[in-house]
Structure formats: structure tokens, C-alpha cells
Design a protein around this nucleic acid. Structure first.
Lengths: 185, 185
DNA sequence: TGCTGATTAGACCGACTTGTCTATCTAGCG
DNA sequence: CGCTAGATAGACAAGTCGGTCTAATCAGCA
């Protein structure tokens, strides 16, 4: 038997949401692409928001795993930070890249979608925390501030790469990260 | 007589779009807030997209004017760049701040809304151009690259300030800009 | 085989969207 | 005054959306 309906729905929704954004993908398209009946969706998830929560949660987890793997494979904290920016370059290079999926989600979520907004906040906070620990290990003077700067470079360069349709902002941001690390200590 | 319907519609739409995003504000709300009849909208604008184009165009112009004023009032290119980041801090400090309106617009615009996406591209390109000229005057080695880094800091810090609900990312980004300027020459 | 519980396709609902149309009203002007 | 051109409110069309419901079908198992 093929994988469960829950899993197929989550994976399909994650892909479509990343390709076009939460509000530009409807239930009908998701169930068609996932090859699942309408009621199977609502038997597994209470609502579209619940499905979105599961889908974006899975994306968040896989992104964090990729970051952790890059850190583990790197030789020292400075190299790890640069390796994380290489991940950004990979993202920005992909076809139909629409910028960071979580920034997109924050833009699409209504003010009352508290759980979705919380997910975005937790995702960004997790990345900032990793930057902060690496910056501390690298011996910079103010790791928290450096982490905020690295996160801004990450988010801004992914966004600009989306808007310009070119990955140049990401490599420029990587250079800026190098400078900040060599100077901030 | 009060100002024209076109102007009231443009101003009202600009405010509402910035408060909640293009797709979360409907025609009905705009005409109600602008105190204008439905048909007056469609006599002045071909469609909602045309109104959005006018509204965001006005916002873009006023933002660029503010940046130019900050540049003119500054003592030297480095100070001008920092003054631009002070503008970002003002934006991020406002109530109901939702991040850069043009990033939000890029997230909401469909792939086929070519004119809206173009507007975003031109807006960001204009800001990057100003950064580039200032960086050149400041004598950095690679003004284009420095401009990309400054733009990423600008966009990323505004986005993070929105997500976190706190202006701290913007002041951290300002510090990063200082570092980049002192090192990039 | 026959039973049971999950899954299916698709009709259906109500709310909402942008955009059109009409019939009425009003302001300016000769 | 009467005329005209524009503005008005609101009904309406056509479509989309998320979500519910039903009736038929299917798979697994005793």
C-alpha cells in the first residue's frame, strides 16, 4: 500500500504552498494532486489551517535538519555559518523559488491565524539561536546581535533573490557574514 | 469640494494594503472607507489591480522621497546610509507594522501580475541604486556588492522586525551596515 | 462468503470575491 | 427654470473558496 493519506496530503500541501503561497493554493488542488478524496482530508485534518500547520511544520523541521547537518559537517563555527549561507544559495537557485517559505507564510497569514504566525516565529527563532551559538563559539563580542545581523542577511538576501530572480544577493550576503565574523570579535 | 475620488481611493487603498496586504482587503472595504460609490472606482480605475498599481506607486514615490530627504540632510555618504536605516527603524516602530509593503506585495502578487511584480522590482532597484551611489562616494571597494548587502540588511531586518514584533533587528542591521562600510574599503 | 469500516466521487451550501448594470439623485450652468 | 453629466446605492452575475453531507465502492478479515 502506498503511504498514508495524511502523509501524501502533508507532502503535497508543503510543495504547493512553497511554490505559490498559502492563499494561492486551494483545497481542491491539494486533494487532486495528492490523489485523495475531499473527505479524507477532513478526516485527517480539522481544517485547511491544520493542514497548513502540519505542512509548514514538516518544512521547518527538514530545514532545521539541513542546517544542523551543515553545521556538523563544517570545520569550526565560522565555516558552519558560511555553510548555512551556502544552503541559502541552494534554495535561491531552485526553479520557481519564491523566497523563504516562512516569510511568505507570515505575509499570507491573517492576524488571527495565531498558530501559523507562531510557527513562523519559532522557525526564525530556531535559526537565530543556531547563529547565536555559532557566533558565540566563534568568539564574537555580542553573539546575540551578530545572530540578528546574520538572520537579517539570510532573510533579506533570500527575499531579494526572489524579487530579482537572481541568486547574487545571497552570495553578497555570504561575504557580509564573513566580514561581520572577522570584525565582531 | 473635497479631494477627488481618484485621490481618496488611492490614499485609502494604500493605507489598507499596507495594514493588511493586497489580498486581505476587498473592493467593498476600500470604497466604504474612501466614501465613494462602487462605480466611481471603476470609472477611475480599470480594475483592482490598476488601483493597487496606483496606490503602491504612490507609496513607492513617497518612500523614495523620504530616503532622498534623509540623504540630503546627512553629512557625508556614511551618515546618509545610517540615516536610511533610521528611516527603517521609524517604519518598524509604527503600530500595525507588517514589514516592507513591497515584499508583502511580492508575496501576494500572482505570477501573472507582471505590472505589480515589476513595481516591486523597480522599487527595490531604486533603493539599491541609492545605496550603491552612496557606497561609491564612501569609497568602498565594490559598491555594487556593498549595495546588495545593505539592501539585504534593510529587507531582512524589516521582515524580522515584523515577525518578532520588535525593532531590535533594525538597530542590529544598522550596526552591521556601519561595519560593512568601515571594512569594505 | 458476508460483514465492517474506511475511502471514494461529487453534489451541495453559504460566504465571499471582483466586476457590471440600472435606476435614481444631485450639482453646475445657461 | 430645465438640461446634462456625473455620482450615487444597490441589485446582480459569475466565479472561487472552505467545508459538509450522502451514497456508492472498496479492502481486509472472520
Amino acid at each position: 500500500m502506498r503511504e498514508s493519506a495524511t502523509e501524501r496530503l502533508t507532502v503535497t500541501a508543503a510543495r504547493l504552498f512553497q511554490e505559490r503561497g498559502l492563499n494561492r493554493v486551494g483545497i481542491n488542488e491539494i486533494i487532486r494532486e495528492a490523489d485523495v478524496a475531499r473527505m479524507s482530508l477532513y478526516n485527517n485534518f480539522k481544517s485547511k489551517e491544520d493542514l497548513a500547520l502540519a505542512a509548514y511544520g514538516a518544512v521547518s523541521k527538514s530545514r532545521q535538519d539541513a542546517v544542523d547537518a551543515a553545521i556538523a559537517a563544517s570545520d569550526g563555527p565560522e565555516a558552519a555559518i558560511l555553510a548555512i549561507f551556502d544552503l541559502a544559495a541552494d534554495l535561491a537557485g531552485g526553479a520557481s523559488f519564491r523566497g523563504c517559505a516562512f516569510i511568505d507564510l507570515a505575509a499570507h497569514a491573517a492576524v488571527d491565524d495565531a498558530r501559523l504566525i507562531d510557527l513562523v516565529r519559532r522557525h526564525k527563532s530556531a535559526l537565530r539561536g543556531r547563529f547565536s551559538r555559532l557566533a558565540e563559539r566563534a568568539g564574537v563580542a555580542d553573539p546575540e546581535k551578530t545572530a540578528r545581523q546574520l538572520l537579517a542577511l539570510w532573510d533579506g538576501s533570500l527575499t531579494d533573490a526572489f524579487i530579482e530572480g537572481d541568486a547574487a544577493p545571497v552570495s553578497a550576503a555570504r561575504c557580509a557574514a564573513e566580514h561581520l565574523l572577522s570584525q565582531g570579535k
